[in-house]
Design a protein around this nucleic acid. Structure first.
Lengths: 163, 163
DNA sequence: TATAGTTAGTTCGTAAACGCAACGCACTTG
DNA sequence: CAAGTGCGTTGCGTTTACGAACTAACTATA
């Protein structure tokens, strides 16, 4: 099938992240969540994704703590899905993807949606900075350090299941 | 199957990016490329991905200009795959994913691979900065601007095919 | 020169996941 | 009480991933 891809034997933060948000449609669901979408029908209509797939994605995102169901109606019981802190922290991933797509796929000019940095008034060219010192970071400014014996993706995500 | 997901009717830089790098295994292929992997057998062994899938992914990444095949042997003709500029620009995406995974999946403590920012000596906490002015950016510092009539993902990616 | 090994795929059959359309359920509104 | 709304679930056909075997084009070794 599609995402039978099983990264669980890997010991990698990137693989772990993809295990949670790497399924088809998942990041677009989150993208729309940042634009205020909170209900099943809204996502379904905007994305055109199959309803069973959407249901599975929402369930998975809730299980992983990215979205949180909040009841907006008892009788009939209905809930909307809102981003948790964990989910909101994915904004950087979306902006990174947007920046890459705008630069390399859409040619700077015609990228229909753009993010303007209010402070400087220019379009955002997403760059990485170090949260600690605030300096901008280029790949060569980084040193990769491996600490031994980290748990695998499977072991890490098992914690989520326990809830 | 899995990634039948067809975002081509969307007009979104994020969807366009996912069309290129959203397939299962693709981002892990790129991750390994950043760690010096350049040949079929290396990826296959490290990832454990099915060979036909790996072949398809490499072909797709080449077609989209993320990887470039370079011959390292005539007779038999063999080539290795190296990241293009476009591919290297995905580093920010990987670091964003890493940062999120390290913070929210692995608990800061045991995230086996860490990126140390040489300048300050601390572990990188990936944050976004504006390439223009250098300031750090938070979601609320951004203004979303929609310009009209942008082309769809399908139209944009058609350019790649033409090559 | 025969045999084995290396590297990079391709070709199957099977199982899983998606796409799509229809259906079900629990209510609300006319 | 019929129609509508919101949120899924079910079923079926198609697509894709998985896994293992196989091919191809050489190189190295005996």
């Amino acid at each position: 099938m599609g995402r039978t891809a099983d990264y669980s034997k890997e010991s990698c933060t990137v693989a772990a992240a993809l295990e949670v948000i790497g399924d088809p449609w998942t990041l677009l669901v989150i993208r729309d969540a940042f634009q205020g979408v909170r209900r099943f029908e809204q996502w379904q209509e905007r994305l055109g994704v199959a309803r069973n797939v959407l249901a599975a994605r929402l369930k998975s995102l809730v299980r992983h703590g990215v979205l949180e169901p909040q009841a907006y109606s008892e009788r009939p019981l209905r809930h909307e899905y809102v981003l948790t802190r964990k989910g909101k922290d994915l904004y950087i991933v979306l902006l990174a993807l947007h920046g890459w797509g705008a630069k390399h796929l859409y040619g700077e000019s015609d990228a229909g949606v753009s993010f303007i940095h209010k402070a400087c008034g220019k379009e955002l060219d997403p760059t990485l900075a170090c949260g600690g010192c605030g300096e901008q970071v280029r790949p060569r400014d980084l040193e990769i350090k491996r600490t031994a014996g980290l748990p695998t993706v499977g072991e890490v995500l098992a914690k989520d299941e326990a809830a």
